[in-house]
Amino acid sequence: MEIVDKTKNKQKEQWQLGDVLKSNDGDIEMIIKDNYNNYTIIDFKGDMMGFGPFSIYELGGHDTISNLQKEYPNYHKVNAKLVIE
């Protein structure tokens, strides 16, 4: 029997502005640029910390996406589609 590890190497994963991320805890986030031109992550969990239908609670605030990725190694990219009705 052969054991094959198909988990992604997080260091090789290339994050981009607008990517949807998922944490190891199941939180769904998106990479955005804030009003200060920093890369940050916003949460899509409803009513997190009392902020309403989705949270704009920011994680990060880094000058580059690679610095943001280094600080949050427990997040990985997921396939996602924007649906507008």
Results as ranks from 00 to 15, higher is better:
W15M: 11
G46W: 00
L82S: 13
M1N: 05
G50H: 08
D43N: 14
M1K: 02
T64H: 14
D47F: 08
V78P: 05
V20G: 03
Y36F: 13
Y39T: 00
P73R: 00
S55E: 12
G60N: 13
T7F: 07
V83I: 15
Y39C: 02
N24Q: 13
T40Q: 01
T40F: 04
Q14K: 14
L59V: 08
K81H: 08
T64S: 15
E58C: 13
A80F: 10
Q11H: 15
E29L: 11
G26R: 09
N35T: 07
Y39A: 03
M49D: 11
K33L: 00
Q14I: 07
M49Q: 11
K6T: 12
E13Y: 04
N35I: 03
I31N: 03
I65H: 15
L82V: 15
D25P: 00
K6G: 05
G26A: 14
V4M: 12
T64I: 09
T7R: 14
W15H: 09
D19P: 01
N79D: 12
T64C: 05
K8M: 11
N35L: 04
K10L: 07
D27F: 08
S55Y: 12
I31K: 06
L59M: 15
I32A: 09
K8V: 12
Y57G: 10
D47W: 14
E2W: 02
G60Y: 10
G52M: 14
N38I: 05
Q16T: 05
G61C: 06
D25K: 13
M30H: 10
D47S: 11
E2D: 08
Y36K: 12
L82K: 13
G52S: 10
Q11I: 14
D43V: 08
D43I: 06
K10Y: 06
E13N: 09
Y75T: 11
K8D: 02
Y36I: 01
V4I: 12
G50S: 03
N9F: 10
G61Y: 01
K45E: 10
H62W: 02
Q11V: 13
P73N: 01
L17N: 01
E13W: 01
Q14Y: 05
V20Q: 12
E85Q: 13
E13I: 07
F54C: 06
D5L: 13
N67M: 05
K45C: 05
N74G: 04
N24S: 15
N79R: 14
P73W: 00
D19W: 02
L17A: 00
I28Q: 09
Y57K: 08
K12D: 10
D25N: 10
M49I: 05
S23R: 02
A80L: 04
Q14T: 09
K8T: 05
G50D: 12
V83S: 07
E71I: 05
I32H: 01
N74P: 00
M48Y: 14
N9M: 10
L82G: 02
N24W: 01
T64P: 06
K8A: 15
L21W: 13
D19L: 04
Y57E: 10
E13R: 10
Y72M: 00
V78N: 02
P53F: 10
K70H: 11
L59E: 13
K12A: 12
Y36H: 06
Q16W: 00
D19S: 04
F54H: 11
